[in-house]
Write a protein that binds this DNA or RNA. Structure first.
Length: 156
DNA sequence: AACGTACACTTAT
DNA sequence: ATAAGTGTACGTT
């Protein structure tokens, strides 16, 4: 499968994506864009739509390592909600600091939603900038509100 | 509210 | 081999 790359906007940042087929190999945030486009799901997500990025695949999920277990647990966090480092640690059978390591080295943020992992007493960290994390969480909260509104009007 | 320390895993030396 | 670093948590002071 041919390796593709491209970027899209996310607020003030550009999201660089490398992928082939439905497998995402790398996601990173940058201040400038690159030529090429990104998978449709990621484009929609960055535009604030409530899409499920767990449809996408990435290689770190297929390893038999502690990090891989951590990433699986993180992927289960639903859109719009958060879990603490300690919470993920419990699920993956490890300790909070290891979760921090795994998040810091997450090769595919967004696809593995490390922005939904927060500290017990605050938002926690995010590279290259916690502002991105704040923006993502705000965006998802908004997406949830919209969903609840839709449900109310349709009385589901 | 500040301080120590236990936690366990990875990467670098 | 071994130490250092880590996007923490929790108990104690």
């Amino acid at each position: 499968m041919e390796m593709k790359s491209g970027s899209c906007r996310l607020g003030l940042w550009h999201v660089h994506v490398e992928w082939s087929g439905s497998t995402v190999h790398h996601v990173r945030f940058a201040t400038t864009g690159i030529p090429g486009n990104v998978p449709e799901l990621i484009r929609k997500f960055c535009a604030g739509q409530r899409v499920d990025l767990t449809m996408l695949d990435c290689s770190v999920l297929h390893e038999d390592t502690v990090y891989s277990r951590i990433y699986h647990a993180v992927q289960k966090i639903p859109y719009g909600s958060t879990v603490t480092y300690g919470g993920i640690a419990q699920m993956a059978g490890t300790t909070p600091r290891v979760v921090g390591q795994a998040m810091a080295r997450n090769p595919t943020p967004l696809v593995i939603p490390c922005h939904r992992v927060v500290a017990a007493d605050g938002i926690g960290g995010f590279s290259p900038s916690v502002e991105i994390k704040e923006e993502l969480l705000a965006m998802e909260k908004k997406g949830l509100r919209k969903l609840q509104l839709d449900r109310r009007t349709k009385s589901i």
